[in-house]
C-alpha cells in the first residue's frame, strides 16, 4: 500500500489520489504568454473541453500524484508505471479551481515548460475535493520554497 510520507516541512513530500483528465502539449511560446492569468488558463481549458480536445470528465482509473522538491510524479496506484514526471524546475504554475459541475470536484491545472522555455504544456487532473486540491498546492508551494532557500 502507498504510505504517505507525512509532511515534515523541511522536506515536503506527499502523495494524493487523483484522476487524469488530459493534457494539451507543445503550445508555442507566444500562446503560453496569453495563458499567464489564472482566468485565461481556465477559459482555455474550458474551450478545449468544448472543442473536444480535453474531456469534461476524467477516466475512472485513479492515480497517485506525488509532490516533492523533485517535482510532480503521476503513477498508477500500484506504482508499477509512472505516467508523468514533471521536474520542479519545469513547472511554471499550478492552478486549482472548482470544475463547476456541482459535485465539489476540483480541477488541477499544471503548466509546464521545456528546458528552452520555447513551448508550454497544460496537464489537467481531477481531485476528489477542494481540501485535497488545497493541500496539493500547499506541498508544491513548500517544495518551491524548499528549493529556493537551498539555492541561496
Amino acid at each position: 500500500s502507498t504510505k504517505s510520507s507525512g509532511n515534515s516541512t523541511s522536506d515536503a513530500c506527499a502523495e494524493f489520489r487523483v484522476k487524469y483528465v488530459g493534457s494539451i502539449e507543445k503550445l508555442q511560446f507566444d500562446m503560453s504568454k496569453t495563458l499567464q492569468e489564472p482566468l485565461d488558463l481556465i477559459n482555455y481549458i474550458d474551450a478545449a473541453q468544448q472543442d473536444g480536445k480535453l474531456p469534461f470528465v476524467p477516466g475512472d482509473e485513479e492515480m497517485v500524484l506525488g509532490v516533492s522538491k523533485y517535482g510532480v510524479k503521476v503513477a498508477s496506484v500500484d506504482q508499477c508505471d509512472v505516467l508523468h514526471r514533471h521536474p520542479l524546475y519545469l513547472i511554471v504554475r499550478m492552478l486549482c479551481y472548482d470544475d463547476g459541475l456541482g459535485a465539489g470536484k476540483n480541477l488541477l491545472a499544471l503548466k509546464t515548460t521545456d528546458t528552452r522555455q520555447q513551448e508550454c504544456s497544460i496537464w489537467v487532473y481531477q481531485c476528489s475535493s477542494s481540501e485535497q486540491a488545497q493541500s496539493i498546492c500547499k506541498v508544491l508551494s513548500a517544495s518551491f520554497d524548499c528549493v529556493l532557500t537551498s539555492e541561496k
Binding site: P38, I42, D46, V92, R93, C96, D99, G100, C137, F144
Partner: peptide, 17 residues
C-alpha cells in the same frame, strides 16, 4: 460554467512569465 475560488501556486523561477 461558474468558477469559484481559484488557488494559484507560481514557481518563483517564472514569476511574471
Amino acid at each position: 460554467i461558474y468558477k469559484s475560488a481559484v488557488t494559484t501556486v507560481v514557481n518563483p523561477k517564472y514569476e511574471g512569465k
